[in-house]
Design a protein around this nucleic acid. Structure first.
Lengths: 215, 215
DNA sequence: CTGGTTCTAGAATCAGATTCTAGTCATGGA
DNA sequence: TCCATGACTAGAATCTGATTCTAGAACCAG
């Protein structure tokens, strides 16, 4: 009944295949790497690859979930101490950028494969592997909003406003032509907060060079 | 010497192939549609398809450029009358969302294929087809910034801040699970402007978790 | 030691992209 | 008008690489 009898060996080769896959996908791209490439780099056999992952897409999905987990664990740890809305927003944005800089291969893979068909098709599977975390963060933002610590907005707007700019920056970086300057996370954290913080008196949006100028 | 002798016929079948491709890609996804699918829908032959596009990727790229052109022409027209920074920013964001709603297939295709390997590899070709437009918009933003009509920021931050949130929203929409509510473009235009408008007093960038929190 | 299960091997199969050869068709010039 | 030319269409033949299949090895519980 055990899910993993010979786990030691099996898990080991599964790991080797995932590592090889990340290397190959990074170097050659997802479409261009063949099972043969992965087989050579990992030292496994075709049969073994298919035993563990079922199909080429299976590798992509497993690797995606793997990287996502790394990312989320790191973020979770960082968010534990954040209780206010501003701290929360800034920490999420900053972490997103900083983590990507620290784990370039994994980050690039996540950025590239997001919405890539091979992975997108496995939506439900990924949901179940990581959905709670996202849902949790989302509901936390709604709570902040309800408490007046964030601007009141349609719920579906929070995530895009908070992370969209960073995501777009990182996408450019992953594409290879923009670099990630050292202090850039601060710029984006500021921007996200500027965009989400409450305040804004009667909101005279038409002419806006007037207000603001705190204590 | 003429580039297009039998152009009428040729152009026609090229068009038919592109249309068929958009339909197939939308319905089945890029990876899953075969040349055979496109051949059947368009009525062309394999040879004809390869004559016009060279490879499956060639179809994807041509279609991408085709859709991008539509998008840009529409945006260009809309921007002509916008002279101030605020108008400009709001128009770009609003247009991005509204256009997507009006041309769902093309928009979804653009969103899905952006950074998709098949298309990303053709970067240079796409650059030359559309680069000017982007460059132009970018330099316009730098001008605004220089004139003090936009917050001073690292140049690479403008595009992500302006369009990142909308892009993220649309990506969710293209993925199929978020819907595009009627007035949502206003929310995102407001947010973009909130985030880019100048103002912000002496800007004490180093420590920013202190101030703010008004009365 | 035996039966059951996981995992590894690698040859065989299959699908589908690409290539190749043989035309067809419209045009410009003789 | 008639031919040469190059754009274009057809579809069969190849090739590449993903997937399947059959055997067997390693391991564990009884």
């Amino acid at each position: 009944m055990e899910r993993k009898r010979r786990s030691a060996t099996g898990e080991q080769s599964r790991r080797a295949i995932l590592d090889a896959a990340l290397e190959c996908f990074s170097r050659l791209g997802w479409a261009a790497t063949t099972i043969e490439d992965i087989r050579k780099v990992s030292g496994a056999s075709v049969g073994s690859v298919y035993h563990h992952f079922g199909a080429k897409e299976g590798i992509a999905v497993a690797l995606y979930i793997d990287c996502l987990r790394l990312h989320q664990e790191s973020l979770r740890a960082r968010l534990e101490k954040k209780h206010g809305a501003e701290d929360f927003v800034r920490a999420v944005v900053t972490h997103h950028i900083a983590w990507s800089r620290e784990h370039p291969e994994a980050a690039r893979y996540l950025l590239r494969m997001r919405r890539e068909e091979a992975v997108a098709a496995a939506g439900p599977e990924i949901q179940s592997a990581t959905g709670d975390f996202v849902r949790e963060g989302f509901s936390r933002m709604k709570d902040f909003a309800q408490a007046g610590e964030l601007l009141a907005l349609p719920p579906s707007a929070y995530m895009p406003l908070m992370l969209g700019p960073a995501q777009e920056l990182l996408r450019g970086w992953a594409g290879g032509h923009v670099e990630l300057k050292p202090g850039i996370e601060k710029v984006f954290a500021d921007a996200a907060w500027r965009c989400l913080r409450p305040d804004a008196p009667p909101t005279t949006p038409t002419q806006s060079l007037v207000r603001r100028k705190g204590p």
